[in-house]
Nucleic acid binder design. Structure first.
Length: 853
RNA sequence: GGGCGCAUAGCUCAGCGGAAGAGCACUCGGUUUACACCCGAGCGGUCGCAGGUUCGAACCCUGCUGCGCCCACCA
């Protein structure tokens, strides 16, 4: 079925169309990735939005693609090489990159096949990859533009370095965790001049170029400006005063290693200290001496031991838990490292990205998350964009023989001649994925796609990615598209958790695989489950039961449709006029109209869980539980006109429900709808509008009374221990019944009541308060009535009514309430009091009339 | 350490100023001619705790407790 949709071109967008555009770019999954529940959720919602818009007559573009995922992909291929006993250096850069492309061709993009299984209606003719030629061109263009505008610069800074991946990491590629460390106190200097510092990183002391204390710290005031001898090195280093130092922590004196610690780097800059690098890119000690060549974690105990030998350790090691950064890819402890990197100056860009939301050009849903967006945008640090990898977009900068630096635009020739070399680094993956909404549509060329579909309508993603991806797209888009935001709406869904509310993760082993769910429950049920849980910005806990419930719903829909079609449901004839229909017909059509409006409103508000809930409720509780049952009476006992009308109503209601459900449940609805209507495909069918002219408050009230009467009789039967199928003779009467007497057949059929014969002798009776008055139901229980059960029931009802009376009287007796409450509220409470009083009277007389048990 | 959010029926969640709701689970009853992946009936909550505002608070304010997420350079 999916292949037929694709082949028919339903998902292929036409940029020259006259229809209004609706566009979504798929957040590109990593080329190494496979479908997890978070994807399944997001894809379901994007698919639902785009399917609905397509049915509404929009020209829909849902553009798919993948991210080259620099570090992740390079790691995968390097691991593969390691299996062959090779490293990337054995192959060399060019061969290695070739190898990555081969890997991509063979194993990459597994997720795309999984998307088809889910039913994603994406435009496959426009599939993109961040390393595609045009996307690379976009990257180069932006780099050049930023470079020329001074928004990109090269600087030596302390950066997070992964000694295993051998690359710089951006802030977001570093995970912090509280690790156990040991704080050791080391005495620098001798005698009166001595000062004790505390550190968890003793090995960096070889690179110390100062000791810092707080300017107001009187303990050390006399030492500021003097020098101490750095143990093990014989170097003299100054003691400086810096407000960064916390006098309360440790000894109040801190060793300063500007080349290996971000804080110390800042202190070093403030005091113009030398930046002494003592570790190489593999985090091995390079300082000459006995420790040279040792790994940082070997050097630490070695240096502590050497210091102890000299009597420099003044306090024993003390366990200390502190936050330590880890590489998000390989979990190696990050090493701060002084290095020359390319940076994006974010201040202006971030402000513009913030303004786009402040001005309402881009709306974030749910709006509460705007606060987080502003927090992030207003406090952004400059962004390190160079990565010491081979897989990615190479930095388009060439260095010449006389320290020349040339940035090469996409249509320019790199400088040639002796001594020119290109920067060996590649760009951060987010640099290219941040251009996604533009680059996928052909930017920097002025393409038809760009004209038609940019800015995109909605960006849908998890709130966890708001900061690093959404913000970047906003910065790039606003900057490069003359201030036009990349999307009108940002919808943020929650995170998926397991049944215990824990985050799903491979290490916890609590991951639910959407593919397994699709095997077990079907793609439709999987999608519907996710939709039912999608409250904006709120996390959802998943369990198999939810999927089973959705599967049951799909089965219910199937059975109900089958039943309707077996009974001739059809859309061949137009819906008869309201005057030719029964109250039951008008009721369901009126409810259907409300449902359509409700669903539309909720969809516009990104309230997917509520859309799904409303459809579930209507289909199961109104259509199946009531209308189909009422329709049976019309179909089996009605005349030919009645039968034809009922078939038409059934057909139209079912038709509309299938259309409304299609965005969430595409496969089953397509199958049922084409069978019902003979139409080509529901994918290109029109979105329903509320059937006009059928809403009927009188019919609604009548059916509500029928429902109440039926429910009460059922309750009575259950209390009396009657078997559901057992037929009981009954006489129905009373003012309340007179109003709904037109539904006599339906009521009797729903509660298995047979007509009262001439010799009818009631042994039990029941009074039901309806909107139209009290209905009296007299039943022949052949003389046997469970008086105890009946008394119990009546007493329970009496208790409820008495409580209600007491509550309402207390309220109405409250002078302040009467003085200040709005009129409608008081009226409502008066009505409640009257109803309660009448109920009490009725129930009491019933109780009095009961024979003693 | 800073910021944000959440605490409502056994579970997952709606409701966010005027009568405590849904689905699932549970109990009871069912050979009702679409469906047992079903039908019907029922049980189940001083809305985390303590104050305050209000005629009225699950809903607004303050504090506390417990979770969760994001950010973060306290050696």
């Amino acid at each position: 079925m999916y292949d037929r949709w694709v082949a028919a071109g339903y998902f292929t967008a036409d940029a020259s169309s006259e229809k209004p555009p609706f566009s979504i770019v798929l957040p590109p999954p990593n080329v190494t990735g496979s479908l997890h529940m978070g994807h399944a959720l997001n894809h379901t919602l994007m698919d639902a939005m785009s399917r609905r818009r397509r049915m509404q007559g929009y020209e829909v573009l849902w553009l798919p693609g993948m991210d080259h995922a620099g570090i992740a992909t390079q790691n995968v291929v390097e691991r593969q090489l390691a299996g062959e006993g090779l490293s990337r250096h054995d192959l060399g850069r060019e061969k290695f990159v070739e190898r990555v492309w081969e890997w991509k061709a063979e194993y990459g993009g597994k997720i795309l096949g999984q998307m088809k299984r889910l039913g994603d209606g994406v435009d496959w003719s426009r599939e993109r990859f961040t390393m595609d030629e045009n996307l690379s061109r976009a990257v180069q263009t932006v780099f050049k533009n930023f470079f020329d505008a001074g928004l990109i610069y090269r600087a030596e800074r302390i950066i997070n370095w992964c000694p295993r991946c051998q690359t710089a990491l951006s802030d977001i590629e570093v995970d912090h965790s509280d690790d156990d460390g040991e704080l050791v106190s080391i005495r620098y200097g001798e005698g009166d001049n001595a000062i004790v510092v505390a550190t968890t990183r003793a090995e960096t002391m070889l690179g110390d170029t100062a000791v810092a204390v707080h300017p107001d710290d009187e303990r050390y005031a006399h030492l500021v400006g003097t020098e101490v001898e750095l143990p093990l090195t014989g170097r003299k280093i100054p003691i400086v005063a810096d407000k960064h130092v916390d006098p309360e922590f440790g000894t109040g004196a801190v060793k300063v290693t500007p080349a290996h610690d971000p804080n110390d780097f800042e202190i070093g800059r403030r005091h113009d200290l030398p930046m002494l690098t003592i570790m190489n890119e593999r985090a091995e000690i390079t300082a000459p001496g006995p420790f040279e060549g040792l790994d940082r974690f070997e050097a630490r105990p070695a240096i502590v031991a050497a210091l102890r030998e000299q009597g420099r350790i003044v306090a024993e090691k003390r366990p200390y838990v502190h936050a330590v950064g880890h590489c998000s890819r390989c979990d190696t402890v990050v090493e701060p490292r002084l290095s020359l990197q390319w940076w994006v100056k974010v201040e202006e860009l971030a402000r513009a990205a913030g303004d786009a939301v402040r001005d309402g050009r881009t709306k974030i849903h749910p709006a509460e998350l705007e606060k987080r967006y502003f927090d992030w945008v207003d406090n952004m640090h400059d962004w390190t964009i160079s990565r010491q990898l081979w897989w990615g977009h190479r930095i388009p900068v060439w260095y010449g023989p006389d320290d020349q630096v040339v940035c090469v635009g996409p249509d320019e020739q790199p400088p040639s001649g002796e001594g020119w070399t290109q920067d060996p680094d590649v760009l951060d993956t987010w640099f290219s994925s941040g251009l996604w909404p533009m680059s996928t549509m052909g930017w920097p060329s002025a393409t038809a796609d760009l004209a038609k579909f940019y800015p995109t309508s909605v960006l849908s993603t998890g709130y966890d990615i708001l900061f690093f991806w959404v913000v970047r797209m906003m910065m790039f888009g606003v900057q490069e598209m003359d201030g036009v935001q990349p999307f009108d709406h940002v919808y943020l869904h929650g995170l998926i958790r397991d049944a215990n509310g824990k985050k799903m993760s491979k290490s916890r082993g609590n991951v639910i695989d959407p593919l397994e769910w699709m095997d077990a429950y079907g793609a439709d049920a999987t999608r519907f489950t996710l939709a039912r849980g999608a409250n904006p910005g709120a996390d959802m806990a998943l369990a198999d039961e939810w999927a089973a419930g959705s599967r049951n719903f799909c089965t219910k829909l199937w059975n109900a449709s089958k039943f309707a079609m077996m009974n001739g449901a059809s859309v061949a004839a137009p819906l008869p006029a309201a005057s030719e229909l029964t109250e039951a017909d008008r009721w369901i059509l009126g409810r259907l109209g409300s449902l359509v409006s409700e669903v539309d409103g909720l969809f516009e508000d990104f309230q997917f869980a509520k859309v799904a809930g409303a459809l579930y409720q209507f289909t199961w509780n109104e259509l199946c539980d009531w209308y189909l049952e009422l329709a049976k009476v019309q179909l089996y006992q009605g005349d030919s006109t009645r039968v034809a009308a009922t078939r038409s109503v059934l057909g139209h209601v079912l038709d509309t429900v299938l259309r409304l459900l299609h965005p969430f449940i595409p496969f089953i609805t397509e199958k049922l709808w084409t069978a019902l209507t003979g139409g080509e495909s529901l994918v290109i069918a029109s979105w329903p509008t509320a059937p006009a002219g059928y809403a009927d408050t009188v019919a609604d009230a009548r059916i509500a009374d029928v429902q109440k009467l039926v429910t009460e009789i059922r309750r009575f039967r259950a209390d009396q221990g009657l078997k559901p199928g057992q037929k009981v003779a009954a006489r129905l009467s009373g003012a309340g019944f007179d109003v709904v007497s037109g539904h006599d057949d339906a009521i009797r059929s729903l509660v298995r009541l047979t007509p009262a014969e001439p010799d009818f002798a009631a042994s039990a009776s029941l009074e039901v308060a309806l909107a139209g008055g009290v209905a009296v139901v007299e039943l022949d229980l052949s003389g046997t009535i469970d008086v105890a059960a009946e008394r119990k029931r009546l007493q329970k009802d009496l208790g409820v009514a008495q409580k209600e009376l007491a509550q309402t009287e207390a309220k109405l007796g409250n002078e302040s309430f009467i003085a200040k409450a709005p009129e409608q509220v008081i009226e409502k409470i008066k009505t409640r009091r009257a109803t309660a009083a009448a109920d009490i009277e009725r129930i009491e007389s019933r109780l009095a009339a009961l024979p003693a048990s």
